[in-house]
Design a binder for these strands. Structure first.
Length: 624
RNA sequence: GCCAGCGUAGCUCAGUGGUAGAGCAGCUGAUUCGUAAUCAGCAGGUCAAGGGUUCAACCCCCUUCGCUGGCUCCA
């Protein structure tokens, strides 16, 4: 056996800790055979060792997790009545949940932060200890930490590890940075309530959010990013650009599209109609109010009642639709279907109303009344994979048009659900097969499916990285059975079709909300509510400018005429603030040469004829 | 729904136990001026709503509504 082993590709001797072998404090932990370990690990084997730097994704997680421990130490020192529960790292920071009767205040954050700074300065080592589970239980019981005891009771391993720094000991798998001084840049961000173990039946704990970075500059960059993101918040831009409003007088979660938002939505809806017709869908419309009986058959009365609105008409119970499927099923049932008819694809821009809990409402992204670009595909079991694949292709095409990157998740059977185990298995496998065929990576969300079937969720990100589910494809074996729909097969027998529920935008509201943030209000020309503002320099060009406006309007260009008695600089400023893609400036020169000066959002200017400009705008439509 | 914070003019925000201010926007007038703000004047508020404490409440207390950040839930 040789006397050395490999560390980041260089030969190093045995018998030393990793920390002995790396210089400085850029390296925060290491990986041996793919498992992250502390730098205090002594090298004894022949494995290959790779270091983890603080500015890598893995390294950041370790720094943040260690920072969470430091925060817990600070909290326990300042508030001895706070009982620590769990404190993981997250995608862009960390949190720690405490059980405490008095919630933390914003002022408390500052105190905790300065205590943490002290602890960091003290550069206390993180000390890992491995002990028997029963000894750990005794220790945390004695220490008055019932939550740690509860976690330990769920652990099956006989041995567990703890990490100790200063006066604080936490049950933890690790790894951690070698000492508190490794945490060079951190900030506490907010306090919030959170249920113990994420279950609303449990006690609400006090959560403190924070973040940490490998350097002060990186932290500063992140805080700047948050500030910049706030500027593109769709609620702010929605008001500034006069796209939509949510009025107190009307009610929470109810969106009013104002003229600018109205035209934007209308353009997107026309786009969707054409897209679906091109892809073999039929356009249908269903009513908002459907008999209560129908919702009983569908299972909504048992599974979704608390989210629905009801109305009694002529002593008959009616439910306002929270989804569009039932009308589409009635269309399917309107005549005998042959296997040759399938697949049938019914598309509806369907407005639904759901009683969402008040605390979840969020601008356009979470509302109570919304319009889905919904479709239901009725197909034979042997057509599922092909149909799902074609929906995925459609989604992919649309996301590319708008420049969205997306993440895919497959959600499996939840506790509260209907249908047989075999159906769920078949449907879930079909969804996964389609994704595999397309070569799309995906995560599995166990138990996150709809109550009637498994689903593929496609999530796109808003300005500050929050992910929103927009497109989704849901496989449903339950409703065809409940409504007893069938088709006549080649064998002359009755067979049960499969139903796919799917949306591409998700809802007009949410998609527009994400679009606003994605483009920061500067919409591409084909969807911009106003595509051009014509502006004259003085009154002497008003007549010619008016002719240009008329010509553009006649060519279906969305144009506004700024003929106010204002300076050209002021007109341009206003058009820029309104994020109008093109400004058509008309002075004496343009008038005499029968042209316009086109200024785009970047400030570039080019002279053009009106006809050329019209052609350019028309060509910007992706379905043109 | 739960935890915390917040609610002053159309918007962004000051303000104090003694009956409200600024900037921008708006309106009026002047200005006709070639690429991100012309000047002047005017007007604008049951201080979210309801109740209470007080000689007196926008301010203190309670309730309701709404918003914000989270949690749970979701297109």
């Amino acid at each position: 056996m040789s006397e050395t082993m490999m560390l980041d590709g260089r030969a190093v001797p045995y018998g030393k800790t990793i920390r002995d072998l790396v210089k400085g404090r850029d390296v925060v932990a290491a990986k041996i055979g793919g498992t992250a370990v502390d730098l205090s690990t002594e090298l004894t084997g022949t494995e290959t060792v790779e270091t983890i730097k603080g500015d890598s994704k893995e390294g950041l997680n370790i720094i943040r997790h260690s920072c969470a421990h430091i925060m817990a130490e600070a909290v326990k020192a300042l508030f001895p009545d706070a009982r620590p529960t769990i404190g993981p790292s997250t995608e862009d920071g960390f949190y720690y949940d405490f059980d405490r009767d008095t919630p933390f205040s914003v002022e408390d954050l500052a105190k905790i932060e300065s205590k943490m700074a002290e602890l960091v300065k003290a550069d206390q080592p993180f000390i890992r200890k491995v002990l028997l589970k029963k000894d750990a239980i005794d220790f945390f019981k004695e220490n008055g930490e019932p939550y740690k005891v509860e976690i330990l009771n769920d652990i099956t391993d006989p041995e567990v590890s703890t990490y100790e720094q200063g006066s604080f000991v936490d049950l933890c798998r690790g790894p951690h940075v070698p000492s508190t001084g490794y945490v060079k840049a951190f900030k506490l961000l907010s306090v919030a309530g959170a249920y113990w173990r994420g279950d609303e039946k449990n006690k609400m704990l006090q959560r403190i959010y924070g973040t940490a970075f490998a350097s002060k500059d990186a932290l500063k960059d992140y805080l700047n990013f948050i500030e910049e993101a706030k500027k593109r918040d769709h609620r702010r831009l929605g008001r500034e650009l006069e796209l939509f409003m949510i009025s107190d007088d009307i009610g929470p979660g109810m969106v009013v599209f104002m003229p600018k938002g109205g035209i934007l939505r209308s353009i997107l809806e026309e786009f969707e109609k054409r897209l679906h017709l091109k892809n073999g869908y039929d356009i249908v419309y269903g009513p908002s109010l459907l008999r209560g009986k129908l919702w009983e058959i569908s299972g909504h009365m048992d599974n979704y009642k608390e989210n629905m609105y009801f109305s009694e008409v002529d002593s008959q119970l009616y439910g306002i639709k929270p989804m569009n499927c039932l009308s589409h099923i009635q269309i399917y049932k309107s005549k005998v279907r042959s296997y040759r008819d399938l697949p049938l694809r019914y598309f509806e821009l369907g407005s639904v109303i759901r009683h969402e809990k008040s605390g979840v409402l969020h601008g356009l992204l979470r509302v109570r009344q919304f319009t889905q670009d919904d479709a239901h595909i009725f197909c034979r079991p042997d057509q599922i994979v092909e149909e799902v694949t074609s929906v995925i292709n459609l989604v992919d095409k649309v996301m590319a048009i708008f420049g969205f990157e997306y993440e895919v998740e497959v959600s499996t059977r939840p506790d509260k659900s209907i249908g047989s185990d075999e159906d769920w298995k078949l449907a879930t496998e079909a969804l996964i097969e389609s994704l595999d065929k397309k070569g799309l990576p995906y995560d599995i969300n166990e138990g996150d499916g709809a109550f009637y079937g498994p689903k593929i969720d496609i999530k796109i990100k808003d300005a500050i990285g929050r992910k929103w589910q927009c497109a989704t494809i849901q496989c449903d074996f339950a409703l065809p059975q409940k409504f007893d729909i069938h088709y006549i097969g080649a064998d002359g027998g009755k067979h049960r079709p499969v139903m796919l529920h799917r949306v591409v935008f998700g809802s007009m509201e949410r998609f527009i909300g994400v679009l606003i943030e994605h483009y920061a209000g500067a919409f591409p020309v084909w969807i911009a509510p106003v595509q051009a503002v014509v502006m004259n320099i003085t009154d002497s060009q008003a007549d010619y400018a008016g002719e240009v406006v008329a010509k553009l309007r006649d060519a279906d260009i969305r144009v506004e005429f700024d003929d106010r008695n204002e300076k050209i600089g002021f007109k341009i400023r206003e058009a820029r603030l309104a994020q109008v893609p093109f400004m058509l400036v008309i002075g004496d020169k343009e008038k005499s040469e029968n042209i316009v000066m086109i200024r785009d959002r970047s400030g570039q200017q080019n002279p053009s004829t009106v006809d050329e400009f019209i052609k350019m705008v028309k060509n910007a439509n992706p379905l043109a």
